[in-house]
Computed example of a mutant assay.
Amino acid sequence: MVTRRFGGRRVVVTGAARGIGARIAERFAAEGADVVVLDLLRDPGAAHAAAIGARFVEADLTDVASARAAMTEAIETLGGIDVLVNNAGILRFGSVMETTPEQWDEVLAVNSRSMLLTTQVAAQAMIEAGDGGAIVNLASMAGKAGGAGQVAYAASKSAVIALTRVTALELGEHRIRANALCPGYVLTEMGAATRTQEQVDLWSSYSPLGRLGTPDDVAGLALFLASDDGAYLTGQAVNVTGGMIMH
């Protein structure tokens, strides 16, 4: 039996057309939340929103004006906001010596700067409403452990962790909580074309549980952090790595 922890709650999930974000949005909707799927991918985003009983708002999170306008539209569509899940992200490979300034800027614009923009808009609405709220940011294991060949990605996810901690410190007085999730290897569409079965087997061996993560592993914790059960958690960067990272 599905619980209804989020009945009447208004939730925005970015990057929710597919992958982890899609499952997070689906789980919120199943537990009674009124959800907006915010994504650049118009057709899959609109289709997923329709399938789960949510609404869709298109956004280019690399563009400052678009990110702010889309977030404003999403909140107006919901009539307010109680939960923001910043999930949108991209993965680009490149070493320290190879990565160009343009590649660096692209990754940080999507993975880090967009979260600042959406948080600013959402937090302002939460403060004006006076009811508090919860922000959940998707970071990564790479934000704590680095990742050879992923310098921009790892840096962007470290920035997410830092942004989350400062958000928690500054907005706690308004009863707004902010936490980050640090998933390990999770099998989604992102990066699917670049991995082999041998790589999957190797990565699985890094976990004491002997497997990789699933979108549900991440979604379950995201919902917990946004729920009343997580009411005394803020400023945390919680690992969802199957024990690959334990700090």
Rank of each mutant, 00 (worst) to 15 (best):
G32L: 09
G133T: 01
M126Q: 04
E198D: 14
D43I: 01
V35E: 09
V160L: 09
R23L: 14
V13N: 13
A129F: 00
P208I: 04
G19T: 09
V200M: 12
N239K: 01
S95Q: 05
E128I: 00
D82L: 04
A125V: 04
Q236I: 10
Y153H: 05
N87I: 02
E170I: 00
V85W: 04
K144E: 06
V13R: 12
L209R: 07
A67G: 15
L138D: 00
A231W: 00
S158L: 09
M115D: 08
R18W: 08
T62L: 12
G32R: 03
E128F: 05
A193S: 14
D229F: 03
I52D: 10
R10F: 06
G8S: 10
D105Y: 09
A125Y: 05
L209K: 02
R195E: 07
E58I: 00
A49V: 02
F6H: 13
N87A: 10
G243H: 11
G143F: 01
Y206M: 13
L138V: 12
Q197C: 00
L78G: 11
L163R: 05
G132W: 00
V136G: 07
D201L: 10
A29V: 05
W203D: 07
A22W: 04
A47C: 02
T100Q: 02
R177G: 07
M190K: 02
D229T: 00
A49I: 02
R42H: 15
A231M: 06
I245Q: 15
A193Y: 09
L181K: 09
M1H: 14
E102V: 11
A65W: 00
S114W: 08
G21L: 03
L202Q: 14
A129R: 05
Q103P: 01
G80M: 06
N111F: 13
L138S: 05
L181T: 08
L61H: 10
R27G: 06
W104D: 08
L209I: 10
V200D: 13
V151S: 15
W203K: 04
G21T: 03
E98W: 01
M115Q: 15
A33I: 09
A134Y: 04
G79S: 06
E106Y: 12
G230C: 01
G143P: 04
L212M: 14
N111I: 09
Q197D: 15
T77Y: 00
P208M: 04
Y153I: 03
L78M: 07
T167N: 15
A222W: 11
